[in-house]
Structure formats: C-alpha cells, structure tokens
C-alpha cells in the first residue's frame, strides 16, 4: 500500500503533464482560426485599438456582409459571392466526372487486368505527383485554342485531367481488396462488363465514393495555382478572389472584411471535414501510402 502510492502519484502527475502538453498544442492549433473568426466580427476601429485575442466588444455582421456583397476585388465591388458560385460551378462537374472516370479505371485495372496494366496504372498515378508548373504553359495555350481560357469550363477540364490520378488510385486500391472470384461468379451468372460494375461493385463502393468526393472536393475547392493561371477576372474561383482582395495594395486594409472573406472560402471544406473527417483522413492516407 505505502509502496504503491508514490508510484501512483507519479503516474498521475505524468498524465497531468501529458494532458497539459496536448492541451497547449490544441490551443496553438485553434488560435489562428479563433483569431480569424473573432476579427471578422469586429469593427475596424476595435481591431486597431483592441487586442487581437479579445472577443469582439461589439459584435458586427457588417464585415461578412461587405465581404459577401460589396468588397472591391479588382475594379468591381460586388464582394466574393460571385466567385463563391464560380467555385461551385467548377467543383461539382469536376468532382463527378473525375470520380466516375477513376471508378471505371480502378475497376478495369483490378478486375480486367491485361498485359501492361501495371505500366498504365504507373503512368496515370505519376500524374498525381508532377509539379503542375510543368503543364502551365501548354495548358494555357490549349485552353486558348479550345476557347476555354478564362472560363469556369476550362478549369473544370483542368481539374478533371489532373484529378484522374488520385481518383484512379483510390478506386484501384479499393477494388483490389475485392476478391476476383466475385467477378468470376458474376460472369458465370451471365453478367457482362457494365452489369458487374453497376450492379455488384458500385453499390458496395460507398466508402470509397465518399473518400473520393471529399478528396476531390477539397482539392478543387482549395486550388489556387490553376485558378490564378487560367481564370482571371469574372470566372476566377474563390481562392483567387480572396487573394486579390487581401493582397491588393490599394486603400486601407480592412482586416475584418479580409477575415470574413477567408472564412467564406474556408467554410465549405471545414464543414466537410467536421462532418466526415474520417473519410478525409482516409483520402489523405491513401494519397501517401499504398493503403
């Protein structure tokens, strides 16, 4: 009894330290988000006079309203809402089409293997990892030739092409864990290529569909390089608009409006993350490890 008690006390102390360290890290990680949020509800006056870490003395929605509807980006003063919808117009078709192509590719590459299937997969997969600077110049020219420069349609195409690698990777790894006998059984039952895919594999693919959609959604929504390179002006996505708003050198910096606009850009992916963090992590992991 007397021998156990100091050891137990030392154990409890260790755990207290452990929790304290983890808590400090949590505070550090939350700090930027907290500052961003509180700043977006403050008046500019309070920002200049008060403390960054303090809660707003007087809560105001004006910065959000301005960021959404009337902040000046470039020459126009309509806020970020148009660009927000641009991003949606880009994300939805890009995610759906690249996802469908990836699903088909994964299906063929695992269940209908042919000579050289590994080489094909390797070539597709490598496209995930190229620095996109290598394709900026020719892509700008091709989009021009296709009359897709400075349009959301052009960005949809770009995101489909460079999304195929990851979507194929996800579905390939997922379908590789399905026994080949499943396809063989279905063949004996008389099902063909598409029947097997749509009736047997796809209905069992909900988890990987969720992973793929979340991954592609996050990637496309957060893209900046393609947006700034291929879509200036009215067709720019929200990230480009946010950067233009924040880093335009003219006038007084309205930090509260900037933070509100940043939150507008961040909210969709944050919501997805909070609702489906597990799937988000799975996407990240299979993007890095074979899985």
């Amino acid at each position: 009894m007397s021998a156990a008690s100091p050891a137990a006390r030392r154990g409890a102390a260790t755990r207290a330290v452990l929790y304290a360290i983890l808590l400090v890290f949590a505070v550090i990680y939350l700090m930027p988000l907290y500052v961003m949020l509180t700043t977006s509800f403050k008046t500019l006056e309070e920002i200049h006079q008060g403390n960054m870490l303090a809660l707003p003395g007087e809560w105001t929605l004006a910065p959000w309203r301005e960021a959404w509807g009337s902040a000046c980006i470039g020459l126009e003063c309509n806020g970020v809402h148009g660009y927000f919808f641009n991003s949606i117009k880009i994300v939805v078709p890009a995610v759906l089409i690249s996802g469908l192509l990836g699903a088909f590719n994964g299906y063929v590459l695992t269940k209908w293997k042919f000579r050289g299937h590994k080489v094909v997969f390797g070539l597709i997969l490598f496209s995930c990892f190229i620095p996109f600077q290598i394709i900026l110049l020719p892509m700008a020219r091709v989009l021009g030739l296709l009359h897709l420069a400075n349009s959301t349609g052009g960005l949809v195409l770009v995101h489909i092409v460079y999304g195929i690698g990851f979507t194929t990777l996800f579905f390939r790894n997922f379908y590789a864990s399905f026994p080949d006998e499943l396809v063989r059984a279905a063949q004996l039952d008389g099902a063909g290529f598409f029947t097997i895919f749509f009736r047997i594999l796809l209905p069992a693919s909900v988890p990987i569909i969720v992973v793929t959609i979340i991954w592609q959604f996050t990637n496309v929504w957060n893209d900046f390089l393609f947006g700034v390179s291929f879509a200036s002006g009215d067709s720019a996505p929200i990230t480009v608009a946010l950067n233009n708003l924040v880093n335009s050198s003219t006038g007084v910096k309205a930090y509260n409006v900037n933070m509100a606009a940043a939150m507008v850009a961040a909210v969709p992916t944050l919501i997805v993350y909070i609702l489906a963090g597990k799937y988000f992590l799975r996407g990240l992991m299979s993007g890095s490890v074979k899985g």
Partner: peptide
C-alpha cells in the same frame, strides 16, 4: 484532439496564408 490537430489540412493555403499574415502582422 485529433480533429483539432488535423483541421488545418482541410483549409486552402490561401486561407492559411491570409490568417497567418494577419496573425503575424
């Protein structure tokens, strides 16, 4: 805690940059 440590990965670099630019102003 895991959720808190991981959430920045869901943010756009532009949002991160904006936030830190302000934070370190």
């Amino acid at each position: 805690l895991r959720t808190i440590y991981l959430y920045p990965m869901a943010l756009s670099f532009i949002v991160t940059g904006t936030a830190w630019q302000w934070f370190l102003n």
